[in-house]
Design a protein around this nucleic acid. Structure first.
Lengths: 122, 122
DNA sequence: TTATCATTTGAGCATCTGTTCAGGAGTTCG
DNA sequence: CGAACTCCTGAACAGATGCTCAAATGATAA
C-alpha cells in the first residue's frame, strides 16, 4: 500500500482500480511466479523427483534407503536432499547414525499426488 | 501385462508379487519420476511460470500480450513458448498475424491452481 | 582410544539452460 | 508488388546445474 492506508474502497475508484481489486486474489505477480518457479525447479530433476516420490510412498526413509531408489552416488543424494531441505520441501530427523527424511509439507504431497494422477490418467 | 493376460489373481502368487500387485498403482517408477520431473522442470523457470500463470488468468493470450507480462525480449518469449508447446503444456491457434496461446491441459491448470494456493495459504 | 558406519561438505568439472542478437517466415494492407 | 506487423529460428555465449571425487563430521561399537 503505497498510496493510502485506508482499507475501504474509495467511491471515486476508477475501472482499472476496481478490476485490480477484484482480481487481487487471482493475479499472480512476477515475484510470486518466480517463487513458484523455484518450487517447481526443485521438483524438476529426475534424481530429486525419484527421492520425493519414494518419500511420498514410504513416508519416511533414511539416506541409505534413498540411495537405493536412484542410480547416483550417496554423495549426489546428499546434495539433492540438502537442496530440498533448505527449500523446506523435506524435513529430517536424526536417529542414531541415521537421518530420516520425510516430505515436510502437505501441499507438496498434494502436488506430487496430483501430478502422479496426471501421468497415469492424463 | 507382459506375463499373462489373465486379470485374476493367481492362487500361487508369492508375497513379493502380491505386494507388487497391491502397490502397482502407488509406486512411481524411475522412468515415471523422470517424466514428471520433465514436466516440473518446464514449470520451474521464472519466465515460463509467469507466462503460464498469465494464461491461467486470461485463458488465451497472443505473444505480444505475453511479452508484456515478462521482462525479457519477444524472442525469449517465443523460445519459452516453443518449449511449452512441444511438451504439450500449452496449445496455440493462429488468428491473422497473431498466434493465441492457451493452457492445453486441465491437469496443468490444476497444478498451477494448487501451487498458487500453496503459496498464498501455505 | 581406534574403527566403522551413515551422512555431509567443498572443490572441480562437464553439461545443460536461458538469454540476446541477427535474420527469416507467414500475414495483412496500401 | 513492397512495406509493416507478428512471430519464429539458429547461433553464440555467460551463467547455472548436477555429478563425482576426496575429505570431514557426527554417532555407535569394540
Amino acid at each position: 500500500m503505497d498510496v493510502a492506508t485506508a482499507p475501504d474502497i474509495h467511491p471515486t475508484m476508477e475501472l482499472d482500480e476496481a478490476e485490480a481489486g477484484a482480481t487481487r486474489e487471482r493475479i499472480v505477480t512476477a515475484e510470486e511466479a518466480t517463487q513458484l518457479a523455484e518450487l517447481f525447479r526443485l521438483l524438476g530433476d529426475p534424481t530429486r523427483a525419484q527421492l520425493l516420490y519414494a518419500l511420498l510412498e514410504a513416508g519416511e526413509l533414511c539416506v541409505y534407503d534413498l540411495t537405493e531408489t536412484v542410480q547416483v552416488s550417496d554423495t549426489a543424494v546428499s546434495h539433492a536432499l540438502r537442496l530440498l531441505r533448505t527449500a523446506g520441501i523435506v524435513a529430517s530427523r536424526r536417529a542414531g547414525r541415521m537421518i530420516y527424511y520425510r516430505l515436510a509439507d502437505v501441499h507438496v504431497r498434494m502436488l506430487l499426488d496430483l501430478s502422479r494422477e496426471h501421468l497415469r490418467h492424463g
